[in-house]
Amino acid sequence: MLRGVDLMRKLLQTSLVISTRRIANTAFNKHLFITNVTLSLSLSGMGDVLQQHHNIAYKQQATWDITRTRHMTCTGMTVGALCHHWTVMLVTLRQVVVLCVVSVVVNGHDWGWGKCPRVDHSPNLSSDQLLGQWYVIEQFDTSSTCLTLNYTRVSPTQLKVTKSRQLVLLDSLRIEHTNSYTGTLDIPDGDKSGKMRVKWPLNIAGKADYIVFDTDGSSYAAVFECQQLTRIGHRASATILSKTPTLDAAIIAEIKKKMTDQGLDTHDFDVIDHSVCIRREDSDLNINIDEDTFKKIIGDASDSFKTIASQVMTFLQVANGASNFADTVVDVTRRLGASTNGSSDTSAAVLVDPDVELLA
Protein backbone atom coordinates (compact mmCIF):
# COMPACT_ATOMS: atom_id res chain seq x y z
CA MET A 1 0.00 0.00 0.00
CA LEU A 2 2.77 2.44 0.99
CA ARG A 3 4.74 1.46 -2.10
CA GLY A 4 1.75 2.34 -4.26
CA VAL A 5 1.38 5.73 -2.53
CA ASP A 6 5.09 6.48 -3.08
CA LEU A 7 4.79 5.49 -6.73
CA MET A 8 1.79 7.77 -7.21
CA ARG A 9 3.62 10.65 -5.50
CA LYS A 10 6.65 10.21 -7.79
CA LEU A 11 4.37 10.05 -10.83
CA LEU A 12 2.74 13.35 -9.88
CA GLN A 13 6.19 14.95 -9.60
CA THR A 14 7.36 13.96 -13.09
CA SER A 15 8.11 16.71 -15.60
CA LEU A 16 5.29 15.53 -17.88
CA VAL A 17 2.64 15.84 -15.18
CA ILE A 18 4.00 19.19 -13.99
CA SER A 19 4.02 20.54 -17.56
CA THR A 20 0.48 19.28 -18.14
CA ARG A 21 -0.77 20.98 -14.99
CA ARG A 22 0.97 24.22 -16.00
CA ILE A 23 -0.60 24.14 -19.45
CA ALA A 24 -4.04 23.37 -17.99
CA ASN A 25 -3.71 26.21 -15.49
CA THR A 26 -2.80 28.65 -18.27
CA ALA A 27 -5.62 27.44 -20.51
CA PHE A 28 -8.38 27.53 -17.90
CA ASN A 29 -7.31 30.76 -16.19
CA LYS A 30 -5.36 33.14 -18.43
CA HIS A 31 -7.00 32.07 -21.71
CA LEU A 32 -10.34 30.69 -20.55
CA PHE A 33 -12.30 32.25 -23.43
CA ILE A 34 -10.07 30.70 -26.12
CA THR A 35 -10.15 27.36 -24.26
CA ASN A 36 -13.95 27.31 -24.06
CA VAL A 37 -14.35 28.21 -27.74
CA THR A 38 -11.80 25.58 -28.79
CA LEU A 39 -13.48 22.86 -26.73
CA SER A 40 -16.90 23.79 -28.09
CA LEU A 41 -15.90 23.78 -31.77
CA SER A 42 -13.89 20.56 -31.31
CA LEU A 43 -16.77 18.71 -29.67
CA SER A 44 -19.24 19.98 -32.28
CA GLY A 45 -17.02 18.88 -35.15
CA MET A 46 -16.16 15.49 -33.63
CA GLY A 47 -19.81 14.89 -32.75
CA ASP A 48 -20.87 15.50 -36.34
CA VAL A 49 -18.12 13.20 -37.67
CA LEU A 50 -19.26 10.39 -35.37
CA GLN A 51 -22.91 10.97 -36.27
CA GLN A 52 -22.22 10.85 -40.00
CA HIS A 53 -20.11 7.69 -39.72
CA HIS A 54 -22.94 6.10 -37.75
CA ASN A 55 -25.38 7.04 -40.51
CA ILE A 56 -23.03 5.65 -43.17
CA ALA A 57 -22.62 2.39 -41.25
CA TYR A 58 -26.41 1.94 -41.06
CA LYS A 59 -26.93 2.90 -44.74
CA GLN A 60 -28.71 6.13 -43.83
CA GLN A 61 -26.11 8.22 -45.65
CA ALA A 62 -23.93 7.51 -48.68
CA THR A 63 -20.78 9.57 -48.03
CA TRP A 64 -19.29 11.91 -45.50
CA ASP A 65 -20.53 15.50 -45.97
CA ILE A 66 -17.51 17.65 -45.09
CA THR A 67 -19.48 20.88 -45.59
CA ARG A 68 -21.93 19.85 -42.90
CA THR A 69 -19.04 19.10 -40.51
CA ARG A 70 -17.53 22.50 -41.24
CA HIS A 71 -20.85 24.20 -40.55
CA MET A 72 -21.29 22.32 -37.27
CA THR A 73 -17.74 23.21 -36.21
CA CYS A 74 -18.38 26.90 -36.89
CA THR A 75 -21.64 26.64 -34.97
CA GLY A 76 -19.74 25.21 -31.99
CA MET A 77 -17.34 28.14 -32.09
CA THR A 78 -20.14 30.70 -31.93
CA VAL A 79 -22.04 28.80 -29.24
CA GLY A 80 -18.80 28.42 -27.26
CA ALA A 81 -18.34 32.21 -27.16
CA LEU A 82 -21.91 32.74 -25.95
CA CYS A 83 -21.72 29.95 -23.36
CA HIS A 84 -18.42 31.30 -22.02
CA HIS A 85 -19.97 34.62 -21.06
CA TRP A 86 -23.13 32.94 -19.79
CA THR A 87 -20.97 30.82 -17.44
CA VAL A 88 -19.07 33.89 -16.24
CA MET A 89 -22.40 35.56 -15.45
CA LEU A 90 -23.60 32.51 -13.47
CA VAL A 91 -20.36 32.50 -11.45
CA THR A 92 -20.93 36.18 -10.68
CA LEU A 93 -24.50 35.50 -9.52
CA ARG A 94 -23.18 32.68 -7.32
CA GLN A 95 -20.86 35.19 -5.62
CA VAL A 96 -23.89 37.34 -4.80
CA VAL A 97 -25.60 34.34 -3.19
CA VAL A 98 -22.45 33.57 -1.15
CA LEU A 99 -22.33 37.15 0.11
CA CYS A 100 -25.98 36.98 1.16
CA VAL A 101 -25.34 33.72 3.05
CA VAL A 102 -22.30 35.24 4.75
CA SER A 103 -24.31 38.30 5.78
CA VAL A 104 -26.85 36.05 7.52
CA VAL A 105 -24.27 33.78 9.16
CA VAL A 106 -22.16 36.60 10.61
CA ASN A 107 -25.06 38.67 11.96
CA GLY A 108 -24.16 39.92 15.46
CA HIS A 109 -27.03 42.26 16.33
CA ASP A 110 -30.04 42.24 18.59
CA TRP A 111 -33.38 43.75 17.61
CA GLY A 112 -35.28 46.21 19.80
CA TRP A 113 -38.39 48.40 19.87
CA GLY A 114 -38.37 52.17 19.70
CA LYS A 115 -35.42 54.49 19.20
CA CYS A 116 -31.77 53.59 19.75
CA PRO A 117 -30.90 53.94 23.45
CA ARG A 118 -28.83 56.95 24.45
CA VAL A 119 -25.26 55.87 25.29
CA ASP A 120 -22.53 58.24 26.50
CA HIS A 121 -19.24 58.07 24.63
CA SER A 122 -15.83 57.99 26.27
CA PRO A 123 -14.94 61.72 26.52
CA ASN A 124 -11.15 61.51 26.48
CA LEU A 125 -10.68 59.04 23.63
CA SER A 126 -8.32 59.89 20.79
CA SER A 127 -8.94 58.07 17.52
CA ASP A 128 -5.21 57.21 17.42
CA GLN A 129 -5.77 55.06 20.52
CA LEU A 130 -8.08 52.81 18.49
CA LEU A 131 -5.61 52.08 15.71
CA GLY A 132 -4.26 48.56 15.34
CA GLN A 133 -5.66 45.10 16.01
CA TRP A 134 -8.07 44.29 18.85
CA TYR A 135 -9.36 40.89 19.93
CA VAL A 136 -13.11 40.59 20.41
CA ILE A 137 -13.66 39.02 23.84
CA GLU A 138 -17.47 39.07 23.79
CA GLN A 139 -20.09 40.26 21.30
CA PHE A 140 -23.86 40.19 20.89
CA ASP A 141 -25.41 37.15 19.19
CA THR A 142 -22.54 35.63 17.23
CA SER A 143 -21.28 32.11 16.65
CA SER A 144 -18.04 33.21 14.96
CA THR A 145 -14.63 32.30 16.36
CA CYS A 146 -11.27 34.10 16.24
CA LEU A 147 -13.03 37.45 15.83
CA THR A 148 -10.79 40.52 15.68
CA LEU A 149 -11.15 44.18 14.69
CA ASN A 150 -8.39 46.12 12.99
CA TYR A 151 -8.60 49.93 12.79
CA THR A 152 -6.61 51.93 10.22
CA ARG A 153 -6.66 55.64 9.44
CA VAL A 154 -7.93 56.97 6.11
CA SER A 155 -8.03 60.68 6.95
CA PRO A 156 -8.26 62.88 10.07
CA THR A 157 -12.04 62.32 10.07
CA GLN A 158 -12.28 58.75 8.79
CA LEU A 159 -11.10 55.27 9.78
CA LYS A 160 -11.41 51.80 8.27
CA VAL A 161 -12.46 48.91 10.50
CA THR A 162 -11.90 45.33 9.34
CA LYS A 163 -13.58 42.39 11.05
CA SER A 164 -11.70 39.12 10.68
CA ARG A 165 -13.26 35.87 11.83
CA GLN A 166 -13.88 32.19 11.24
CA LEU A 167 -17.44 31.11 10.48
CA VAL A 168 -18.93 28.28 12.50
CA LEU A 169 -20.63 26.78 9.41
CA LEU A 170 -17.31 26.37 7.57
CA ASP A 171 -15.59 25.26 10.80
CA SER A 172 -18.14 22.45 11.12
CA LEU A 173 -17.28 21.36 7.56
CA ARG A 174 -13.57 21.23 8.47
CA ILE A 175 -12.75 23.94 5.92
CA GLU A 176 -9.76 26.05 6.95
CA HIS A 177 -10.76 29.62 6.14
CA THR A 178 -10.77 33.27 7.10
CA ASN A 179 -13.42 35.94 6.53
CA SER A 180 -12.73 39.67 6.52
CA TYR A 181 -15.36 42.38 6.37
CA THR A 182 -14.28 46.04 6.02
CA GLY A 183 -16.42 49.02 6.94
CA THR A 184 -15.92 52.78 7.08
CA LEU A 185 -15.97 54.86 10.27
CA ASP A 186 -16.74 58.58 10.03
CA ILE A 187 -15.90 60.99 12.87
CA PRO A 188 -18.42 63.85 12.46
CA ASP A 189 -17.08 65.82 15.42
CA GLY A 190 -13.29 65.86 15.60
CA ASP A 191 -13.09 66.33 19.37
CA LYS A 192 -15.51 63.44 20.01
CA SER A 193 -13.62 60.45 18.61
CA GLY A 194 -15.67 58.10 20.76
CA LYS A 195 -18.83 58.99 18.85
CA MET A 196 -18.66 57.81 15.24
CA ARG A 197 -20.84 56.57 12.37
CA VAL A 198 -20.16 53.22 10.66
CA LYS A 199 -21.12 51.95 7.19
CA TRP A 200 -20.84 48.21 6.50
CA PRO A 201 -20.91 46.99 2.84
CA LEU A 202 -23.70 44.45 3.35
CA ASN A 203 -25.91 46.82 5.36
CA ILE A 204 -28.33 48.25 2.80
CA ALA A 205 -30.05 50.33 5.50
CA GLY A 206 -27.14 52.80 5.64
CA LYS A 207 -25.00 54.07 8.49
CA ALA A 208 -25.24 53.26 12.20
CA ASP A 209 -24.05 54.91 15.42
CA TYR A 210 -20.68 53.54 16.58
CA ILE A 211 -19.94 54.58 20.14
CA VAL A 212 -16.87 53.74 22.22
CA PHE A 213 -18.39 54.02 25.70
CA ASP A 214 -15.56 52.61 27.82
CA THR A 215 -11.79 52.28 27.41
CA ASP A 216 -8.51 52.79 29.23
CA GLY A 217 -6.95 53.98 25.97
CA SER A 218 -4.48 51.15 25.63
CA SER A 219 -5.53 47.64 26.72
CA TYR A 220 -9.35 47.36 26.48
CA ALA A 221 -12.36 49.09 24.93
CA ALA A 222 -16.12 48.61 24.65
CA VAL A 223 -18.22 49.57 21.62
CA PHE A 224 -21.97 49.99 21.26
CA GLU A 225 -23.41 49.98 17.72
CA CYS A 226 -27.02 50.89 16.93
CA GLN A 227 -28.98 51.54 13.75
CA GLN A 228 -32.43 53.10 13.62
CA LEU A 229 -34.35 51.13 10.98
CA THR A 230 -37.84 52.53 11.42
CA ARG A 231 -39.63 54.75 13.90
CA ILE A 232 -40.62 51.71 15.90
CA GLY A 233 -37.51 49.55 15.75
CA HIS A 234 -33.70 49.39 15.79
CA ARG A 235 -30.88 46.85 15.75
CA ALA A 236 -28.03 47.03 18.23
CA SER A 237 -24.80 45.26 19.09
CA ALA A 238 -22.14 45.57 21.77
CA THR A 239 -18.52 44.43 21.62
CA ILE A 240 -15.87 44.07 24.32
CA LEU A 241 -12.34 44.46 22.95
CA SER A 242 -8.88 43.69 24.27
CA LYS A 243 -5.36 44.06 22.91
CA THR A 244 -4.75 40.45 23.99
CA PRO A 245 -6.83 37.28 23.37
CA THR A 246 -8.02 37.32 26.99
CA LEU A 247 -9.30 40.00 29.36
CA ASP A 248 -9.55 40.08 33.13
CA ALA A 249 -13.00 39.02 34.37
CA ALA A 250 -13.19 42.05 36.68
CA ILE A 251 -12.81 44.44 33.72
CA ILE A 252 -15.51 42.58 31.77
CA ALA A 253 -17.83 42.79 34.76
CA GLU A 254 -17.17 46.53 35.10
CA ILE A 255 -17.97 47.11 31.41
CA LYS A 256 -21.25 45.23 31.74
CA LYS A 257 -22.13 47.22 34.86
CA LYS A 258 -21.68 50.47 32.90
CA MET A 259 -24.01 49.09 30.24
CA THR A 260 -26.62 48.16 32.84
CA ASP A 261 -26.37 51.63 34.41
CA GLN A 262 -27.26 53.12 31.00
CA GLY A 263 -30.23 50.81 30.57
CA LEU A 264 -28.59 48.35 28.16
CA ASP A 265 -29.22 44.60 28.26
CA THR A 266 -26.12 42.43 28.70
CA HIS A 267 -27.73 38.99 28.32
CA ASP A 268 -27.01 38.74 24.58
CA PHE A 269 -23.21 38.52 24.89
CA ASP A 270 -21.44 35.47 23.45
CA VAL A 271 -17.84 34.62 24.37
CA ILE A 272 -15.43 34.47 21.41
CA ASP A 273 -13.08 31.48 21.20
CA HIS A 274 -9.52 32.37 20.19
CA SER A 275 -7.95 28.99 21.02
CA VAL A 276 -7.74 27.52 17.48
CA CYS A 277 -7.29 30.23 14.87
CA ILE A 278 -6.12 29.90 11.28
CA ARG A 279 -3.66 32.41 9.88
CA ARG A 280 -4.70 34.00 6.62
CA GLU A 281 -1.67 32.69 4.73
CA ASP A 282 -2.39 29.12 5.93
CA SER A 283 -6.11 29.03 5.08
CA ASP A 284 -7.66 27.20 2.13
CA LEU A 285 -10.39 29.83 1.67
CA ASN A 286 -10.29 33.60 2.19
CA ILE A 287 -13.61 35.48 1.97
CA ASN A 288 -13.03 39.22 1.72
CA ILE A 289 -15.87 41.76 1.63
CA ASP A 290 -15.41 45.52 1.39
CA GLU A 291 -17.13 48.54 -0.17
CA ASP A 292 -15.87 47.59 -3.66
CA THR A 293 -17.11 43.98 -3.55
CA PHE A 294 -20.66 44.63 -4.78
CA LYS A 295 -19.46 47.20 -7.31
CA LYS A 296 -17.17 44.60 -8.87
CA ILE A 297 -19.82 41.85 -8.85
CA ILE A 298 -22.52 44.07 -10.33
CA GLY A 299 -20.06 45.45 -12.88
CA ASP A 300 -19.01 41.93 -13.95
CA ALA A 301 -22.64 40.83 -14.25
CA SER A 302 -23.51 43.92 -16.28
CA ASP A 303 -20.57 43.38 -18.62
CA SER A 304 -21.56 39.72 -19.10
CA PHE A 305 -25.16 40.64 -19.96
CA LYS A 306 -24.00 43.30 -22.41
CA THR A 307 -21.53 40.94 -24.07
CA ILE A 308 -24.10 38.16 -24.49
CA ALA A 309 -26.69 40.60 -25.88
CA SER A 310 -24.13 42.13 -28.23
CA GLN A 311 -23.04 38.75 -29.58
CA VAL A 312 -26.62 37.59 -30.11
CA MET A 313 -27.52 40.80 -31.95
CA THR A 314 -24.34 40.57 -34.03
CA PHE A 315 -25.17 37.00 -35.00
CA LEU A 316 -28.76 37.87 -35.96
CA GLN A 317 -27.76 40.94 -37.94
CA VAL A 318 -25.09 39.12 -39.91
CA ALA A 319 -27.27 36.05 -40.46
CA ASN A 320 -29.96 38.25 -41.97
CA GLY A 321 -27.67 39.34 -44.79
CA ALA A 322 -25.47 36.25 -45.24
CA SER A 323 -25.95 33.83 -48.14
CA ASN A 324 -25.43 30.72 -46.01
CA PHE A 325 -24.55 29.66 -42.49
CA ALA A 326 -20.81 29.30 -43.09
CA ASP A 327 -20.60 32.90 -44.32
CA THR A 328 -22.51 33.96 -41.21
CA VAL A 329 -20.10 32.33 -38.77
CA VAL A 330 -17.00 33.56 -40.58
CA ASP A 331 -18.38 37.11 -40.51
CA VAL A 332 -19.34 36.82 -36.83
CA THR A 333 -15.87 35.64 -35.87
CA ARG A 334 -14.35 38.61 -37.68
CA ARG A 335 -16.46 40.96 -35.55
CA LEU A 336 -15.64 39.10 -32.32
CA GLY A 337 -11.89 39.46 -32.77
CA ALA A 338 -10.96 36.58 -35.09
CA SER A 339 -9.63 36.74 -38.64
CA THR A 340 -9.77 34.50 -41.71
CA ASN A 341 -7.20 33.38 -44.20
CA GLY A 342 -8.35 36.05 -46.64
CA SER A 343 -10.80 33.92 -48.59
CA SER A 344 -14.37 35.09 -49.01
CA ASP A 345 -15.96 31.72 -49.84
CA THR A 346 -17.68 29.32 -47.50
CA SER A 347 -14.52 27.28 -46.92
CA ALA A 348 -12.63 30.23 -45.41
CA ALA A 349 -10.46 29.07 -42.52
CA VAL A 350 -11.04 30.87 -39.23
CA LEU A 351 -7.92 32.01 -37.38
CA VAL A 352 -8.66 33.01 -33.78
CA ASP A 353 -6.34 35.60 -32.28
CA PRO A 354 -5.11 34.10 -28.96
CA ASP A 355 -4.60 37.55 -27.44
CA VAL A 356 -8.23 38.59 -27.86
CA GLU A 357 -10.31 38.52 -24.64
CA LEU A 358 -13.94 39.59 -24.89
CA LEU A 359 -14.29 40.08 -21.14
CA ALA A 360 -12.01 42.53 -19.39
Rank of each mutant, 00 (worst) to 15 (best):
R9H: 07
A27R: 09
F33Q: 15
V37P: 00
L41W: 05
S42K: 11
L43H: 00
D48R: 09
K59A: 08
Q60E: 07
R68G: 01
R94I: 12
L99C: 10
C100R: 14
C100D: 14
N107F: 01
D110W: 12
W111M: 10
G114S: 07
G114H: 08
R118H: 14
P123N: 08
L125R: 07
Q129M: 06
L130G: 00
G132A: 00
Y135T: 02
V136K: 01
F140I: 03
T142D: 01
S144Q: 12
Y151L: 00
V154N: 14
T157C: 07
Q158L: 07
K163A: 03
S164T: 14
L167H: 00
L170P: 02
L170Q: 09
L170I: 05
R174E: 09
T178E: 12
N179R: 07
S180K: 06
Y181M: 08
L185M: 06
D186A: 15
D209S: 09
T215Q: 01
S218T: 05
A222R: 10
C226V: 02
Q227T: 05
L229E: 06
S237D: 09
A238E: 08
T239W: 01
L241Q: 01
K243S: 03
K243E: 03
T244A: 10
I251K: 12
E254F: 08
I287K: 02
I287S: 04
I289C: 07
D290E: 13
E291M: 15
E291F: 11
A301S: 12
D303N: 12
A309I: 07
A309Q: 06
A309N: 05
Q311A: 06
V312T: 09
A319E: 00
A319T: 04
N320I: 08
N320C: 09
N324M: 10
A326Y: 04
D327N: 13
D327H: 14
D331K: 13
T333R: 09
N341R: 05
S344N: 06
S347Q: 09
V350F: 04
V352Y: 09
V352T: 01
D355R: 15
